[in-house]
Design a protein around this nucleic acid. Structure first.
Lengths: 148, 148
DNA sequence: GTTCTTGCAAATACTTTGCATTGGC
DNA sequence: GCCAATGCAAAGTATTTGCAAGAAC
């Protein structure tokens, strides 16, 4: 997921969403951008601490950014929240190793087709605005060590 | 999701997973069975309280049952965990209204196809053992009231 | 009788809120 | 200067752990 935005692009993202551009916000976005996979808020907070940014700011910022669609929250079933920069196509998801926590991306969940199908089935719903989709499994390393 | 197991069937589920059959466990499973949609652990706990079952027992039981595949945890992005009896076919998922919290089922996420596709793409993984998939949107009631 | 399970108390982890101060625009 | 954003402290909520007593088998 690292499609390098410049510092200026990150600032624009923030401004366009109607927020003031501040150092903590730029830092959070650039940390997310530098990470190949979603970052848990705890890790993020510990890196922010080095720049004297409080973790409360991380919570507030990420929650605001999620509402504005700048970032996406993903659930890896590990107790705390993971975030990544939003994927424009909205069609990349993750495979999570349940043993050693390796994470990989995969593409092509064909969300639109499924959403249309779901709305046809479920009469009580008007629109679908988001979806979550993750696979959980074993990476090859863990599969081997479990067998032994 | 209410495919009425008898009390005896529930006991068998428990026994087959290698656990002792106890009143709290039977009660938890029958509460899950009676509910049309996943139940959050807080609601469950408050109902268990009436039978003098501690919420710690709910946490421990559900977590054990999830590992054994008796129940499934679903993430509705509402802070606390939701559980339901495991769906044998494993192919039913939910549409969750983000405003008033209506939940409906839908079928046909075609998980096997996607899993095969994902494994073809992602060489580092050996197997996929589970998946999460939920849609978030607006039910018709909420869509109307927001417009006004 | 042995081992697993439970309740209760307490600890830990995660997230949100209140408020005075700071800083973007 | 105005209003939003931040840090710090504290509260609130969710979940886990330790251990002695009780129940399943």
């Amino acid at each position: 997921m690292s499609k390098k935005h410049s510092q200026e692009t990150l600032a624009t993202l923030i401004r366009n969403a109607g927020y003031k551009v501040t150092a903590p916000r730029l830092l959070i976005l650039s940390l997310l951008e530098q990470s190949k996979y979603p970052v848990c808020i705890k890790d993020l907070a510990s890196r922010l601490l080095k720049a004297n940014v409080d973790q409360v700011t991380a919570y507030r910022t990420l929650s605001a950014f999620e509402k504005s669609g700048i970032v996406t929250q993903v659930d890896f079933k590990r107790g705390s929240s993971y975030y990544e920069l939003r994927d424009e196509q909205g069609d990349h998801h993750h495979i999570v190793c349940t043993t050693w926590h390796k994470v990989e991306d995969f593409k092509g969940c064909e969300y639109e087709k499924l959403a249309a199908k779901a709305l046809r089935q479920v009469k009580a719903f008007a629109t679908i605005t988001a979806h979550s989709f993750e696979f959980f499994g074993l990476c090859k390393g863990c599969a081997v060590s479990i067998k032994n």
